[in-house]
Amino acid sequence: MPDVIKDGRVVADPWQGQNLLTPQELNASGALLGAAAADAAPVAVVLAPDQPPSTIEGDLNRLGLVAINFPVFTDGRCFSYARELRELGYTGEIRATGKFIRDQLFFLQRCGFTAFQFEDDANLEDCLPSLTDFSESYQAAADQPEPLFRRRD
């Protein structure tokens, strides 16, 4: 079973085998379910970099997983998407998939990503230290609502 990094640990993928909907599919299924949507099991969706969180805004409360897929690791839109999802109040798992790299983990996690699904899951334990490259940051972000200047002593 493939492993992922979730909440700072290497674990078996809890969403293994789950079908990831596109925003269009998600919207369509929501319309189909109507009022029943609220009681249905949480669903999983995947965003590509031209699909901002606004495309799924109405369905956030029935999502358990939002995967954001990196077509290349330098596509910085994904970072903003995660932050916006958190600002919209989404509290479920945000997972990086695709071509992101280990050396981005610290920033990704600051932006609100809580899970990381590498294309190659061979050496995940080795990647964990990158989550804690820094023990302090200047900016407010998803992991720290207050900027440093409100916390300095």
Partner: peptide
């Protein structure tokens, strides 16, 4: 400088 240094969201701009 402080705000932009190691800003997590804007390390990979266009």
């Amino acid at each position: 400088r402080q705000w932009s240094t190691l800003h997590p969201e804007f390390a990979f701009l266009p």
